[in-house]
Design a binder for these strands. Structure first.
Length: 154
DNA sequence: GCCAACGTTGGC
DNA sequence: GCCAACGTTGGC
C-alpha cells in the first residue's frame, strides 16, 4: 500500500464538504498538472491512503485521511465547456486528465499545521515533498515513515 | 530546442 | 495583496 498527500482549498472543497457527501466519497477531479496526473494515473491504487491537506487558507495543514476507493479513470470535467477545469485539448477517446475517487476515512482530532510540519523539516520529516522549496504539486507520495510520524503528531 | 513572457500556486 | 517559484506557451 502506498501513501499520498492531496491538496485542496478548503474554501472551495475541504474536509467539511467531503464529510457531507453521500458515503463521504468524492471524485478527485480537476487536477491539471502533468506530474500530479502521472501519479494519479500510474501509481495511485485502490486501497491506498492519503492525507487531505488544506492549502491557500488562513492555517494550512493536514485535516484528515482519505482512502482511495476507485483507481484512475478519465476526468470528465475536462470535457465540459462549462466546467472551470474544461480542457478542449482533452479528447474523450484519449483523455488527457484523470481522476480517482476518495472516501473520507478519518478527520484528525486537530489540524496538523504546516508550521508544525516545518518544525520537523530537518528531523523526522526530512525529505517530505510538501516541505520542499517551491513545491506546488497537488498530488504527491510520502513514505510510510512520514505517514506514521505525522499521524503520531495528531 | 531555446527562452522570454505569461499564468498559476500558495505561503505569508 | 504581495511575490517567489514554478509550469506552460509560443515566437524564433
Amino acid at each position: 500500500m502506498a501513501y499520498w498527500l492531496l491538496k485542496t482549498e478548503p474554501e472551495s472543497f475541504g474536509i467539511e464538504h467531503l464529510a457531507a457527501l453521500p458515503r463521504r466519497t468524492a471524485s478527485w477531479d480537476g487536477v491539471r498538472n502533468y506530474q500530479a496526473r502521472n501519479f494519479l494515473r500510474d501509481d495511485v491504487r485502490r486501497g491506498d491512503l492519503a492525507f487531505l491537506y488544506h492549502s491557500s487558507c488562513a492555517v494550512p495543514g493536514i485535516a484528515g485521511t482519505v482512502k482511495v476507493v476507485r483507481a484512475a479513470y478519465a476526468d470528465a470535467s475536462a470535457f465540459d465547456p462549462r466546467d472551470p477545469h474544461h480542457d478542449p485539448a482533452s479528447d474523450p477517446a484519449a483523455p488527457r486528465w484523470y481522476t480517482i475517487d476518495v472516501q473520507l476515512q478519518r478527520r484528525l482530532p486537530r489540524l496538523i499545521t504546516l508550521e508544525e510540519l516545518r518544525a520537523h523539516e530537518r528531523g523526522k520529516l526530512r525529505g517530505l515533498t510538501l516541505l520542499q522549496r517551491g513545491n506546488r504539486l497537488s498530488v504527491m507520495p510520502l513514505t510510510s515513515d512520514h505517514w506514521r510520524f505525522i499521524l503520531s503528531l495528531a
